[in-house]
Nucleic acid binder design. Structure first.
Lengths: 230, 230
DNA sequence: GACTTTAGTAGCGCTCTGCTACTAATTGTG
DNA sequence: CACAATTAGTAGCAGAGCGCTACTAAAGTC
């Protein structure tokens, strides 16, 4: 090991193929759903795929991700952020050497382009192993980050009831939350403000609609949590 | 938009160059330091660089990252995880189209290979813009994840004092923590166990040495935190 | 009107957390 | 040796946070 210079020599120019994959997630029928495309060619090895494309010349990956998402969705997703880059032996539908994965969040109730289908993440069809791993990473990434960034609000229309918001958290975290505690914590976090609209959803008392309106919190600097789940 | 098929046509094979960059971080002299290499060639545009190399044929990026880290460090870092992939217009020393960045953690007091220097992250020299952004992402990633994964312990030798551990957190979070509260939270998290060794560090009472020994925590399922800092 | 269903709140008790204030053990200094 | 200085480590209080039960409110259903 010590006989090798730590500085890389001027690299020989190696080229490879790179794809951008987009995982679009939305809440749907009580679970999270991912947007899959039906393969245009019935002979294709993978009948279903994540929206993807190879990276175009001079195109930044996040630009490509937005382009691919628009193509599959018809509109731009409410949020789009990089997840992970895979380059292992697992198969990608385009046999790309590298695939850069993006997570896009889509508000509940949105529709998709023709040929695209929302599929519950716990009922996925057979799909190329690398794209399967990408979806798992997306769901896990959403779970990890939902407390730290306003992702839940990107999964809802601009106005929503607090019960709907709580359902998003329950869906993403896959556990029940206590109503009063949830609302108290939400109140303390100064994240939403009430509108003067109410919505009656069939049975039961109508619910007030809220919108995402974060205010700067004073202080905030808390001690270390050690939220490490070993 | 709607006239474009959501399914990508069979992609023309586009190739590009990809690099793997490694940000090795260690605590050093009261701040975090990153390992930089001096350019072998004085005429090079960048006098200093992050350890990097282009991705070899059939080599998975995490394998390349481990290889590059070993070359720069002489040993394997205590942890190595993917950070982000850049592909924008910012310059990379190898002019790579894509660069996959990895974060490596190195225990306090480790030495580097010849030609490699530990530089405090708040006193960086001029460096290619993409690698500068990579370092920023590494420091920020460490800050974001230190509560959720045992990264702090990878920045220390196997046996350490609780004051040393607290210093790591203070360094990474760049704020002071309260001693009693820190220890109480650490105790509750069942993350460390005492050894029967003590260390006298010049002045003051000797400190007991601890080791990282996480135990499974019961329960753990807490409510939503809304730790969103707006 | 009684019952069901969903929204929303009050408040109790326990836990968690920030803090002050202590004790403990060592080195340095006259 | 006495005593200050320095670092390690703990006790315990007060207030904030959190889980929970139990309630009230407003709608539809029969």
């Amino acid at each position: 090991m010590s006989d090798r210079l730590p500085v890389a020599p001027r690299p020989s120019v190696r080229t490879l193929t790179a794809a951008v994959d987009v995982v679009l997630l939305t809440p749907r029928d009580g679970s999270m759903a991912v947007l899959l495309l039906r393969a245009p060619d019935n002979q294709a090895r993978d009948r279903w795929l994540l929206p993807w494309d190879s990276l175009r010349a001079e195109e930044a990956p996040e630009v490509a991700a937005a382009r691919i998402a628009r193509g599959a969705l018809g509109t731009t997703p409410a949020a789009l952020e990089q997840l992970v880059t895979f380059g292992d032996g697992r198969r990608h539908p385009g046999d790309a050497r590298l695939s850069v994965a993006y997570l896009g969040l889509v508000a509940q109730g949105s529709t998709a382009s023709i040929g695209a289908v929302w599929v519950p993440v716990d009922r996925l069809p057979v799909i190329a192993p690398r794209q399967r791993a990408t979806i798992d990473a997306a769901v896990e990434g959403l779970r990890r980050r939902i407390d730290q960034s306003p992702m839940a609000f990107r999964l809802l229309p601009p106005a929503f009831t607090l019960s709907e918001l709580q359902s998003i958290y329950e869906l993403v975290l896959s556990r029940r939350l206590h109503k009063a505690s949830f609302r108290r914590a939400l109140q303390a976090a100064l994240l939403v403000e009430p509108t003067d609209e109410w919505r009656s959803e069939g049975r039961g008392r109508p619910a007030q609609l809220f919108r995402y309106a974060p205010r700067k919190r004073r202080g905030g600097q808390r001690g270390v949590r050690f939220d490490l789940i070993v």
